[in-house]
Write a protein that binds this DNA or RNA. Structure first.
Lengths: 270, 270
DNA sequence: AATCTCGTTCCACATATCGGAACAAATAAG
DNA sequence: CTTATTTGTTCCGATATGTGGAACGAGATT
């Protein structure tokens, strides 16, 4: 989780000028688990005191952060408002939704839609069995590519150079005993995925959780995405997942084609 | 330094330095109804060409915007990720949720939780009858205070000077024939709301939609919020709403007290 | 009272931003 | 086919803007 500090090799994680710094500070606060005091942020961000203070002031003035009575900082409501528009105006999710639903009816398990961003998969929609009213808890959540079905599926669509560029930037964290630990094993599996057209998550991100995923390519757009059917290991065997793989691939293909048509004029992927 | 700039007469968001400009541009794109081309944004933002171009580049580099093949700009996924954290880490919503649910069970109608931000109400949670899986469509949505039950209820908690400062900045847009058109009528109703402890929306925002709302004050925090029970006019009469008002006030009070206790150590309202 | 920690403010300095203007590439018009 | 227009990108000197070390003061701690 603190692999971001590694800017060394890459050299450009440092943030684009002023805006980059502001966003880094914002992220430090938002990604933290509770209200952050000035000193907390000071340590995480590494910015000098004066600079950080002004940065925070600006973020508060913009409504991106809120300062509480005890002077600590929290995420501001403006983030929600911006994201709300970003999400509801997203045509790609709109196109995919009926397909997700169909897949859920077929399998009875949770279905995810995710989009590739850099070295992560961002979940954009979810259809689940027990309809918790919650904002699907995971919408907007970003998970590493190398340990998720959708992630590996999406990677399989990338041209090899691009793939290798991304893989080089990954820090393989072992979430479970089955998580990929090296670029080699990951790249090997990607080759298989290219052949099969679908990917599995064999309890690589969370123990007892499996999934089968298929990549989505939208011709004419450069967005790379994927869908998956996820379930607990005790209920869904690998055989079961394999049996579903055809339906998942078909749904992914359908979404890709439909999106290619309807994404032109309207608002497209994220 | 910005105290005098942000304070009084100016209704324009002058934009706090560089970050302010960047956010203004971001908002212009995000709030638009589709992908925005350079020229579109140029017109809306009023920034000079060179400046705008650099601003957009930075926003894209930060993942806040995405540039499509046809060079037009769209909201980026990073917004979703940030908001996801901002929402799920929000303790206030967490505290309120069971009360919303109870209110829903009692009334059978949709229940909203909203927080006051400047001159708008931002919806933070929602419990509705037909559990659409969707990210409650309205979470994060911002509506004007003067035409929503929660908005008017929240206003009723403000000290008079603060209230007048806000009212002075409102542009009364007539969404329906029943929408407040002037500060006078609004302020008059606020006085009533202070007396009654609850507010109604008499089809002021959307025709055929009514609600009863109560304000939430959290002692020790400076957040002002409210909850409401909303329903279609054909199903919920004003008498019905009045009958529910006691329960709504009670729920609001309970949320306020509980939040005051549990908001200290954890992450509070955004 | 003395010390420490934390947040805020100040100000000389440097640099990132600014924005007009030139440029290139499409698209439309003549 | 040539000329005009629109659209996006790049350049660069001037300067506004952000930078960050240091001083300040309010609370908490001893």
């Amino acid at each position: 989780m603190s692999a971001e500090l590694t800017g060394i090799a890459d050299g450009e994680a440092a943030g684009t000028g002023t805006l980059g710094k502001a966003m880094a500070v914002l992220e430090a606060v938002v990604m933290a688990d509770g209200p952050q005091r000035f000193t907390d942020i000071l340590a995480k961000s590494g910015q000098p005191r004066g600079t950080l203070h002004r940065l925070l002031s600006h973020l508060v003035e913009e409504g991106l952060l809120v300062q509480r009575r005890d002077l600590s900082y929290e995420p501001g409501l403006r983030l929600l408002t911006l994201a709300s528009r970003a999400w509801s105006g997203n045509r790609f999710r709109d196109v995919a939704e009926p397909h997700l639903r169909k897949l859920h009816e077929l399998t009875g398990e949770t279905v995810h839609l995710g989009i590739l961003r850099e070295t992560e998969i961002v979940y954009v929609d979810k259809v689940e069995s027990r309809q918790t009213v919650r904002m699907s808890s995971q919408i907007g959540k970003a998970s590493p590519v190398y340990c998720t079905g959708i992630g590996k599926a999406a990677l399989s669509l990338l041209p090899q150079p691009e793939l290798e560029r991304l893989v080089a930037r990954m820090a393989f964290h072992a979430f479970t005993p089955h998580t990929h630990r090296s670029a080699e094993t990951l790249l090997a599996e990607i080759a298989d995925i290219r052949r099969d057209g679908h990917a599995f998550d064999r309890e690589e991100h969370e123990i007892e959780i499996r999934c089968v995923a298929a990549p989505i390519r939208v011709s004419g757009s450069d967005l790379t995405a994927g869908i998956s059917v996820t379930g607990p290991a005790y209920r869904v065997s690998m055989e079961q997942l394999t049996a579903w793989s055809g339906a998942v691939r078909a749904a992914a293909a359908a979404i890709g084609e439909e999106a290619a048509i309807r994404l032109g004029p309207g608002r497209g992927g994220p």
